[in-house]
Design a protein around this nucleic acid. Sequence first.
DNA 1: TCCAAATCTAGAACGTGTTTCAATAATCAT
DNA 2: ATGATTATTGAAACACGTTCTAGATTTGGA
Lengths: 198, 198
Amino acid sequence: MTSVTEATPGSNAQRERRRRILDATIALADSGGFDAVQMRAVADNADVALGTLYRYFPSKIHLLVTALGRQFERAEEQSRNRQVPGDTAHERVMYILGHTTTALQQQPELTEALTRAFMFADASVADEIHFVGMKLTAMITRAIDGTDENREPTDEDTAIVRVISDVWFTALMGWVTGRTQAEDVTKSVDVAVRLLLR
Amino acid sequence: MTSVTEATPGSNAQRERRRRILDATIALADSGGFDAVQMRAVADNADVALGTLYRYFPSKIHLLVTALGRQFERAEEQSRNRQVPGDTAHERVMYILGHTTTALQQQPELTEALTRAFMFADASVADEIHFVGMKLTAMITRAIDGTDENREPTDEDTAIVRVISDVWFTALMGWVTGRTQAEDVTKSVDVAVRLLLR
DNA sequence: TCCAAATCTAGAACGTGTTTCAATAATCAT
DNA sequence: ATGATTATTGAAACACGTTCTAGATTTGGA
């Protein structure tokens, strides 16, 4: 037992298993998307039994949405440490979302897997979904507020952020399902942001 | 062979089979949602062989999205024949979407099945998806324009309609997946419409 | 009317998410 | 250290979407 324990519950071995499972999930998703994340393959690659995998994550959706949360946590962390460039709220929001969209589109298979899982998710995954929503909201809100670090977001800000998130998500969904082009995602968001932040 | 043939291709018997399949689909979806629409059950209830079902609809998703199209066609037809009440664009859009939302929420299982299918749909269902999008766009656009029947929608109108559709869809998705309350759907849309139509 | 092509049927079979179970291993309180 | 509890393993089994096959049936043209 090392003294350095993370906030995650369970023994060392359990935290290790959990990490291996999520790593295997991301690796498989990155290589072949949603369909490649097969529970038997995840279990094999993570060196755990299938039953153990299900003890840690009650379904494929939980697994993927949790992985999505981990990715968003990192993205939000990164964005938190840097000043968002841009003179207007519009520019700043587009910087963040354009950036994030491009990053996601660099790993199309992974993005497809995670987005599809997000779409599938039902009430039993509400916590994980909420977590992801919070991270996204935080990023966009920070972009709207800009340099004014201490500005308390107004109700209107919050409402605008929600609408932008919805548009972004729907556009992303169109792209991962192969119904729209990569550029269309950023375009859709840009139109929405223009309508909302004026 | 009767003389009255619909626009649907194929022989009489084939049109009958197709109708039986879609009817069985709606009935099963209405009774138990997405999970109850099992391909074997649909085939049984429609009195066709499983192979035949797959000849008519290449996947469960095609089947459900086609059924969704039929439902939306009817809804749009109904709304087309009536004047939309309300003095402002906001009131009229909310009337239409509030109405439609309430109608969908009367049949939660059916709505869950159709919405989930819509979410799943990939490029191979693009035509059916597009059809549904057109119907929805038509309804909302008519509501924005109000009594001015001949007004040509501006680019801005079109953009606004897209954003509203996205918000509505995302909210509906939250509800069918059991993550939000029924009222939240209309509330979300109302906030978005207020931000966009001012 | 008859033949060839297309369609339909019944049912088996396959893949993958999920569940279950008996046996083994690890952990923890006393 | 020991016994009890809990976690893990390996493997079988199940459910449902989907595919495949062999034989009937229907259809449409000569």
